[in-house]
Computed example of a mutant assay.
Amino acid sequence: MPGSPRRVAIVGYADAELLDIACPADVFDAANRLGARPPYELQLASVDGHGIRTGSGLTLQPHLRLDQVAGDLDTLVVAGGWGSTAAAADERVLAHVRRLARTSRRVASVCTGAEVLAAAGLLNGRRATTHWRYAARLARDYPSVTVDPVPLYVRHGNVYTAAGVTSGLDLTLSLVEADHGPSLAREAARALVTYLQRPGNQAQVSLFLTGPPPEHREVRDLTAYIAEHLDADLGTPALAARAGISTRQLTRLFDAHLGTTPGRYVRTIRTEHAARLLSGTDLPLATIARRCGFGSTETLRQAFLDHFDTPPSAYRRVHVRQAYG
């Protein structure tokens, strides 16, 4: 009936990620405190109703067992964490997730909670994301799922998947915005001292931040050179000549140590750097394209569409608004 609370059930299990539960719960709670009408009614559930020992060692007490969650739900959220593989192999968990999904307006997962949704058959034929570290495993184990490791979150129909940890904030803020409008979502974000909200198609992680430099000397030297000379000729023949090896050997080395080809690596690095310039400067697109080694603004635009699923002008508007709005 009108005004009835929006019922939200969060599914937890042993070794779930604490933030995968807390981030959605706190966003919905913040929306309630700021006047969401109808409000959200939160329930944390586990198979046996016993305390959930999270991956950090802290224990959460569920409100009820999964078999006690009945009736229509507004939102079903499945947390991720170290225990997701065991949860995805537990037919009791899967049966309840399937049952609840049938009567839920929307279904969501955070991080490796996508593995549980996939095991339950809820991601078949859908595009989905998960934490970038586990995307290849999800794609391998569930070939019927189109796994995209780049975005912070993905919506396909009424099913939402988030990359993990704090991206659960971004996803849940987008749900609040859909339910109650941008003003309330913005106030919830401010209350939580977070962005409103990073767009779902923002990359999970920049290649500049993915970890330490490659151990292989030639690859390490080349990646450093690429980062410092984005406007230079960074074609595979030029890079191979610089390293004093064949193009075939260069391609093998990049595949072994970076998991990609030289051309794709260069294009991604250029696009990521262009994204930084777009959000942090007021340089014209043509200048950014030139500094980052793109032959034209159209080439830059196509790279952004491929990498972020949005044109550079829209990317700049969103990120400048979030930083200063």
Rank of each mutant, 00 (worst) to 15 (best):
V8A: 02
A9L: 04
I10L: 08
A25P: 02
A30L: 05
R33M: 10
L34T: 02
A36R: 01
P39E: 08
Q43L: 09
S46F: 11
S46L: 13
V47M: 04
D48A: 14
D48E: 08
G57Y: 10
G57I: 12
P62E: 04
G71V: 01
L73F: 00
D74Q: 06
T75P: 14
V78Q: 06
G80T: 00
W82L: 10
G83M: 11
T85H: 15
A88R: 00
L94D: 02
R98G: 03
R98S: 05
R102E: 09
R106S: 06
A108Y: 03
S109T: 03
V110I: 12
C111K: 03
G113V: 04
A118M: 02
A118V: 01
A120N: 07
G121N: 07
N124Q: 15
G125K: 02
R126G: 06
T130K: 00
R133D: 08
R137D: 06
L138D: 01
D141Y: 10
S144R: 11
V145N: 07
V147I: 05
L152A: 13
Y153A: 05
G157C: 08
T161L: 06
V165I: 14
V165K: 03
D170A: 08
D179A: 07
P182S: 10
S183H: 15
A185L: 09
A188N: 12
R190I: 05
R190A: 12
Y195P: 13
L196I: 11
R198H: 09
P199C: 08
N201P: 15
A203G: 10
A203R: 09
F208W: 13
G211C: 01
E215M: 06
V219W: 07
D221H: 02
D221L: 07
Y225N: 01
E228I: 08
A232C: 07
G235Y: 07
A240V: 05
R248V: 13
F254C: 06
F254D: 01
T261M: 12
R264W: 08
Y265C: 03
R267E: 11
T271D: 00
S279E: 14
P284L: 09
L285C: 02
T287F: 06
R291G: 11
C292R: 01
G295Y: 02
T297G: 12
E298R: 11
R301H: 11
D306C: 10
H307Y: 11
F308T: 07
Y315K: 11
R321H: 14
